[in-house]
Design a protein around this nucleic acid. Structure first.
Length: 458
DNA sequence: CGTGAGTTTGT
DNA sequence: CAAACTCAC
């Protein structure tokens, strides 16, 4: 019988259900010391952004509360992984570490370089498949989504989620930081109110899933309408690992809506896969030709986009939803991203940065892969001629303008006919800006810019 | 090595 | 229908 404890190192798997790292740590009956280490220095530019820190604060509080019900508590440490882990090992005499497998390049490097004198076991807690598990016939990673997803569907082995433990062995716990001292909550007053539409934590995640499941059958069409809640809104819970993709997958049913929803889970996997095999994904275009793309520098336009003051209603509604609630409807993410990249001709990395700071669901892989997809620099990107027309998108997916009216009150009383193109209205509101770029001009300029890098040599 | 296909569209 | 290109088999 061993009595030395195991360190259970939580990262982006802040849950007790279906947690392979927790199950492994408990397997031989040792005491388990649960820890979370905030290492902003190692994460450097990809340390959690403002909205993510708000979420993290509440998620850590929730996990701590759940652990206290089982007689433990969550040990919080701030500092370099290597230094804090070696301190924890000295304090607890732990003889092994269990941690969820990360896909962020900085975290992979950090874990690979640890030399602590005890075994470090990594467990697949955040993904359905290990990034090396799904390969093409010739053994290379997939770069195109559809064949990747088909391979996933072939390989997927249904298995029930691991239940949360009903009890935990008693453990002698080392000292912990006070969560409030980490000051993860925003000082910005207009934030906390809008962010409270979310309920971080494992219970909040389960409630979201439960609320979504009856609507999953309609997901294939309802997901496109930003004026209603047709999506699962599970993204921040998945990003912090408060629920496992397998738990979500297992809960879904049959039919088109459920299938399309599961496909979205596979997009999340695909993004992680890309990041795993191309660690430069957040910084460099996957298609090398795009390194020479003639981006414009336009801080005024960038700022107008960030604050929802572009004069294009659906773009401004989306950017304001993001700023106020830390979340944006997926359809609108595509529209706002396309507008920044194509109509404003601003580098996708500027958008990636802004989303990283303002999204509660910010995930390095999904964020980078999605921005590259819109930019056309990704492995499996939209064809170059595909430029979203934000007015048409608005008319198609927010036909009555309810979404725009909610987030852009200047347009609340605008006639339906002009809600997505108020510049055509006989009396446009004086307190709402004219478009910072003419849509037809922006589209033509984007296509011209793309021609400069897609022309192949004779 | 040939062939079919490629999330989310615009005009 | 655009439509160069790459990917996967």
């Amino acid at each position: 019988m061993t009595s030395t404890p195991a360190l259970l190192w939580f990262r982006r798997d802040l849950r007790l259900h279906d947690n392979a790292a927790l199950a492994a740590a408990l397997a031989d009956g040792r005491p388990v010391v649960p820890v979370f280490i905030l290492d902003d220095e190692t994460a450097a530019e990809w340390a959690p952004g403002g909205a993510s820190r708000w979420w993290l604060h509440h998620s850590l509080a929730s996990l701590d509360a759940d652990l206290r019900k089982l007689g433990l508590r969550l040990i919080l440490r701030r500092g370099h992984y290597a230094k804090e882990l070696s301190r924890l090992l000295a304090e607890t005499k732990a003889s092994e570490i269990h941690v969820g497998l990360p896909t962020e390049p900085w975290a992979r490097r950090a874990i690979d370089s640890l030399k602590l004198g005890v075994p470090i076991h990594t467990h697949r807690t955040a993904l359905l498949f290990h990034p090396d598990a799904i390969k093409t016939g010739s053994g290379t990673p997939y770069g195109v989504f559809t064949p990747y997803s088909r391979a996933c569907l072939r390989e997927y082995q249904p298995h029930p989620p691991i239940p949360a433990p009903k009890s935990l062995p008693a453990a002698t716990l080392p000292p912990s930081d006070e969560l409030n001292d980490w000051k993860l909550l925003p000082t910005h007053p207009d934030w906390s109110a809008g962010l409270s539409v979310h309920t971080p934590g494992e219970k909040g995640a389960a409630a979201r899933l439960k609320a979504f499941l009856p609507k999953a059958a309609a997901y294939d069409t309802a997901r496109n309408l930003p004026g209603q809640i047709g999506t699962s809104m599970l993204s921040p819970h998945l990003a912090w690992g408060e629920i496992s993709p397998n738990t979500v997958w297992q809960a879904t049913g049959e039919g088109r809506g459920n299938e399309v929803f599961r496909t979205e889970i596979l997009w999340r996997e695909f993004s992680s896969n890309l990041l795993w095999h191309f660690p430069a994904l957040p910084e460099a275009p996957l298609k090398p030709a795009y390194a020479a793309f003639p981006w414009r520098t336009d801080t005024k336009a960038l700022h107008a986009w960030q604050r929802g003051q572009t004069g294009v209603p659906i773009v401004d509604a989306g950017m304001r939803q993001l700023w106020q609630t830390g979340w944006m409807h997926n359809r609108v993410r595509m529209i706002t991203a396309s507008f920044l990249i194509k109509h404003l001709l601003i580098d996708w990395r500027e958008g990636e940065r802004w989303f990283w700071d303002t999204l509660v669901d910010a995930d390095l892989a999904a964020n980078a892969a999605s921005w590259q997809w819109v930019a056309g620099s990704g492995a499996d990107a939209a064809p170059f001629f595909r430029v979203f027309n934000p007015s048409l998108q608005g008319e198609k997916f927010d036909a009555d303008g309810a979404y725009v009216r909610h987030y852009v009150p200047e347009l609340e009383t605008m006639a339906e006919k002009y809600i997505h193109s108020p510049w055509n209205a006989p009396n446009p509101p004086k307190n709402y800006p004219s478009p910072i770029v003419d849509l037809a001009f922006g589209r033509a300029r984007a296509l011209d810019a793309l021609k400069t890098i897609t022309k192949s040599a004779p």
